[in-house]
Write a protein that binds this DNA or RNA. Structure first.
Length: 532
RNA sequence: GCGAGCGUAGCUCAGUCUGGUAGAGCAUCACCUUGCCAAGGUGAACGUCGAGGGUUCGAAUCCCUUCGCUCGCUCCA
């Protein structure tokens, strides 16, 4: 449960995101658009750092994963094969009395007597309604049951003491048009297309309907054979992709957490089926066992991913893990682990790591008629590879990093005055700006000149922010809110006022506010070691 | 999609009940001041009060519609 305090915290975070330029509402000048968000200067850097680091962790630091960048719009058959066309367009119906919503295909067929009315009026109040309405009751049940429900319906439409008009009774079998709970008529089924639809080519005809992808994963399966042919990889190996996905969420919520346009980082790690793996003696990728089955690979990837989160500042104690129970699993999944973050608005999923068997490749083999089989030279067997899928939401992760970094500290200065310091304790790896550079005083040209030299030295290698406005303490605090992990101040000692300190600067640590003296020549190696 | 609440300067909010042509604090910019942890001085800029329509001599304020945000329900592949 989100307590009021948690809600307050979230509001402060949203406010800081706007004030400092992490996140803006999309199309704000036109009143905004529900479920879409933009990243401002700091947010864009932060998100890019997250994606770059993930990409490097997958493709650069491993031998056994290669990248892919596929289009957002693909052949519509892909979504038939994946099952999205059917499961993403459930018709929904609402109860006309209670407004409760049902999936139309989940209503049990019922039989009984339908009592229909052409309207109702209340002569005393002088109100009437000509809306038609009907109620289903089991055959033989007293008609008053139906009339009671109908009176409630008309009462809710402004007829205080309704006298029912034009009652007719009809016996029906196997209807799904009535609410099983109270017999009330439901609305007409309305399609809920959770995939964004568009048309390829200038003519809007049913023949050229296409969809904006609701996930990036299917492109990996669809291109599996091509990648296999060119990448000189043997099982086990993975294909990863970062890209936009689109879902027409019924109800976007919780800031950027559930957006209609969002970005995913997905890996499909292909492995041998257990029986083929058991016969194997060749080693796979670095640090891997030759004959691991899907359970071991699944656990391996869960651990890999948790370590990755730790390396950007999300420790195990702010994460949560949910091993899905048998009955929660999608029918094709053998196991799924959700990695969750404890957001102020509740503990919510960042990443799902699913063991999907060979379901997806088999589906595409069936729908495309093209073989998805892999020939294992060692065991001389042919099979459709199985897959482990770590699938993470970039925007959710960025939001988690922002929430996790947001810190308010009570500071007591030397005069004993208390104040609050707001600091974004982002890990240096993902922080948008790595170092702030400040001349102690801006009206001393020699300080400014030296500070600009330091700025030019560093900005070739990392994002820096140069600031000479106002008091030095104020500049430090401004960078605290931006999450800049280090501050460098150029003072008169840098210029050689005390000869032994010539060409040294003050290095200030964001989290501890500790200051130390460091030679300008040592700055770059020091900073690079912290941000890589 | 339903219900409730909210929407006024970059941010936090007052003003709305009792219509009379928009305010505070912080932030921003310039100059002065500045000797390492923000809120000294002087000056400046900043809102068609979410949008549209209506009532009225006159609307931030009353009415209707709409968009957005929050919470609950629903949904969650």
């Amino acid at each position: 449960m989100a307590e009021p305090k948690a809600n307050e915290r979230m509001e402060k975070i949203v406010s800081l995101c706007k004030r400092r330029g992490f996140v803006f509402q999309s199309s704000e000048i036109y009143g905004g658009i529900n479920g879409f968000w933009d990243y401002g200067p700091l947010g864009a850097e932060l998100k890019r750092n997250v994606k770059d680091y993930w990409w490097r962790s997958m493709t650069q630091k491993r031998e056994d994963v290669v990248g892919l960048e596929a289009t957002i719009i693909m052949h519509p058959k892909i979504w038939q094969a994946s099952g999205h066309t059917s499961t993403f367009s459930d018709p929904m119906v609402d109860c006309l009395l209670t407004k409760k919503r049902f999936r139309a295909d989940q209503i049990d067929p019922q039989s009984g007597d339908i009592h229909s009315y052409t309207g109702a009026h209340d002569t005393v109040a002088g109100k009437s309604s000509s809306e038609t309405y009907s109620v289903l009751i089991p055959t033989g049940k007293h008609p008053e049951y139906a009339r009671k429900v109908a009176r409630q319906f008309y009462a809710a439409r402004g007829v205080p003491a309704p006298e029912l008009l034009g009652e007719t009774i009809e016996t029906v079998k196997e209807t799904v048009r009535y609410n099983p709970d109270n017999g009330s008529l439901l609305t007409e089924p309305r399609p809920f297309n959770l995939m964004f639809k568009t048309f390829v080519g200038p003519v809007e005809s049913e023949d050229n309907v296409a969809y904006l992808r609701p996930e990036t994963a299917q492109a990996i399966f669809a291109q599996f054979k091509n990648v296999l042919d060119v990448a000189r990889q043997k099982l086990p190996f993975g294909i990863c992709q970062i890209g936009k996905a689109f879902r027409n969420e019924i109800n976007p919520r919780n800031f950027t957490f559930r957006s209609r346009e969002f970005e995913q980082m997905e890996l499909e790690f292909f492995i041998k089926p257990d029986d083929a793996a058991a016969k194997s003696s060749l080693t796979g990728g670095p640090g891997t066992e030759p004959n691991w089955g899907w359970e071991q690979w699944h656990k391996y990837w869960v651990e890999q991913r948790v370590q990755w989160y730790e390396s950007i500042g999300l420790s195990r104690d702010v994460l949560d893990f949910h091993w899905q129970k048998k009955e929660e699993l999608a029918h094709y999944a053998k196991a799924t682990v959700d990695i969750l973050y404890k957001f102020p608005f509740g503990t919510q999923e960042l990443e799902g790591i699913a063991a999907r068997g060979n379901y997806d490749l088999t589906q595409h083999q069936t729908f495309s008629g093209k073989s998805m089989e892999y020939f294992d030279e060692e065991t001389k067997t042919r099979f459709v590879p199985h897959v482990i899928e770590p699938s993470a939401g970039v925007d959710r992760l960025v939001l988690a990093l922002i929430c996790n970094a947001y810190t308010e500290e009570e500071i007591t200065d030397e005069k004993g005055v208390k104040e609050t310091r707001v600091v974004m304790k982002l890990h240096p790896r993902v922080a948008p700006v790595k170092v702030g550079i400040f001349p102690l005083l801006k009206n001393k040209p020699e300080l400014v000149k030296k500070a600009q030299e330091v700025r030019d030295l560093l900005r070739a290698e990392m994002p820096v922010f140069y600031d000479d406005a106002g008091a030095i303490g104020r500049r430090y605090r401004r960078q605290d809110e931006a999450g800049t992990p280090f501050g460098v101040t150029i003072d008169f000692d840098t210029l050689g006022e005390k000869p032994e300190l010539k060409d040294t600067v003050t290095l200030r640590d964001r989290d501890t506010m500790q200051q130390s003296r460091i030679a300008i020549g040592d700055l770059l190696p020091f900073l690079l070691s912290k941000i890589r």
